[in-house]
Each structure stands twice: as C-alpha cells, then as structure tokens.
C-alpha cells in the first residue's frame, strides 16, 4: 500500500528533504580526560570522525547493536534529548545542535513523537489526557477524525477513561504509541518499545508501528536489541563501539542475528 506521504510544510521553514533525520560527524563523549567515555564516534588517536547516518522519510528503521554500542546515545542525540559533543543533526531541514533549550523543547513537542521502554505515561492523567498531552502543551487541538482513527487502530476506545495504573503493560504501550502518532510528527522515536512486554503484547505494538508506517507514511526510528523486533523494520542500522557497523535492508530475524554474530556480539 502506498499512501501519499504527509509532509508538513511550514512557511519560512527549510524545504522538506528526502531524509527525515540525518546526522553527520556525530560524536558524544561523557566525562573528560582519562575518564572520558566515547559513546559515539571520535575515539582518541583514531582517524575516524563521528557517525554519519540518515533515516528515510516514511520508512521503519531499527537501530541495533550490542550493549554499549551507542544505540541509545545515538537516538537521544537524533531526538534532541541529548546534546552531541560534536557534529550535526538535521530534522528535515532544521539543524538541532544549534537550537537553544526552549527551541529544542518546542521542536520535540511539535515534530517528534516518543515511545519509551517504560514509564511512558503520567500516572495522574487518564489515557485520553495522556494521548493529547503533547498537543495540549503546544496549545493545539487534535483533529477529532484523526484522533478517532488512531484510537480505533490501537484498540483503545474502551480504555480512554482509565488511568495508567488500571491498564496492562501492552495497553499502556499502545497509549504511548497513540500519543506519539496523534500530532503526526516528522519522526517517531521508539526506545526498546517492547522491552518490558511479553512476546504477544510486544508483537502487537510492533505491528501497530509497522502499519502506521505502511498506511500513513509515518517515519519511525526504533532502538532495539531484539532481532525479532528488528525484523519488523524496513531497514536495520547496526552499531558497534559507537560506529555504524552495518546496514541491512528488508531484514529477517535470521539475517539480523547473523549480522550481529558477525560483530562478535
């Protein structure tokens, strides 16, 4: 199914590019001196610069790698949650690294959706309030038709009045997906979205993410260490020791596993 790709064009903003997110020469170092940890790129005395990677619009990409490979750091930097030590990140045509905290906050609110591994929802708000929270923070009104469509697709219609404590883990994660999809962001970042779920609930969430890409052209970038989860993606970017170590199109669980083994993980 090839639905038209919804591209938000805002006057005065740079024209849309083919890549939804792009990083060039990205490095991230924690600490300094002899205790410095190079989470991304730029090893001392090593000629290589930072990480260069791009994520296509309307695609479902998985970032994979063993523990300590820098996959979470990469995602944090791409999503504007963390400030890179060096290099640049572009969301569409916007350069993130030059933004001030408030501009970055607004950009996250308006153009990025998040699904985290755990603690995705605010306990004091019910499901509906959680779903519309980012739009309300932005002072925007959700389109009712779109809201109904998202809620229906995620099977949450009967759960809207429930607080997170009254929902199962899978339901909570579906609420988080709905919240991420509702504002039609440029990218949805998912950080181990199935990490805390049993395999059936995990498969449901992955299905939903994939169908949102297929049916509405949503861009999704997911960090995972589970080859089975990665198999739902259109493409897998492999990371090892803070550098891009491989790239697999149309992955299967087996091809991903084989590639990981090749990394010595």
């Amino acid at each position: 199914m090839s639905a038209p790709v919804p591209v938000m064009t805002v006057p005065g903003e740079p024209p849309p590019t083919a890549d939804a997110v792009r990083a060039s020469g990205l490095t991230r170092t924690y600490g300094s001196g002899s205790t410095a940890v190079h989470a991304l790129g730029g090893r001392v005395g090593d000629g290589t610069a930072g990480v260069d990677v791009a994520f296509a619009r309307g695609a479902f990409t998985a970032i994979m790698g063993p523990s300590g490979s820098g996959k979470s750091t990469l995602m944090h930097c791409l999503a504007g949650l963390d400030t890179p030590t060096g290099g640049q990140v572009f969301l569409g045509g916007t350069e993130l690294t030059s933004l001030r905290d408030d501009q970055l906050t607004r950009l996250r609110r308006d153009r990025i959706g998040f699904v985290f591994q755990s603690f995705n929802l605010l306990p004091v708000l019910d499901a509906r309030e959680n779903i519309v929270l980012p739009m309300q923070l932005a002072g925007r009104r959700p389109d009712p038709t779109w809201f109904d469509a998202v809620v229906a697709r995620l099977g949450l219609r009967d759960r809207l009045r429930h607080r997170p404590a009254e929902l199962s883990g899978g339901q909570q994660q579906r609420v988080a997906v709905a919240r991420a999809l509702l504002p039609r962001p440029d990218v949805v970042f998912a950080d181990e979205p199935t990490g805390n779920l049993d395999s059936r609930a995990g498969a449901e969430v992955l299905d939903l993410l994939r169908s949102s890409v297929r049916e509405t052209g949503q861009t999704v970038v997911m960090v995972t260490h589970d080859p089975a989860a990665a198999a739902y993606a259109d493409r897998v970017v492999l990371l090892a020791d803070g550098r891009v170590a491989g790239d697999i199109d149309d992955p299967t669980a087996d091809s991903v596993l084989a590639a990981l083994r090749g990394l010595g993980a």
Binding site: A79, L81, D101, D102, T105, R109, L122, P134
Partner: peptide, 16 residues
C-alpha cells in the same frame, strides 16, 4: 525525576 524527564521529552518547557 523520571516523570519530569518524560514531560520535558514530550515538550514541557523549563518554565512550564
């Protein structure tokens, strides 16, 4: 802390 982090990630400014 986690919750405030989530709110910040979702777009709550420091002032908010």
């Amino acid at each position: 802390r986690q919750e405030n982090g989530l709110l910040r990630a979702l777009g709550l400014t420091r002032g908010q």
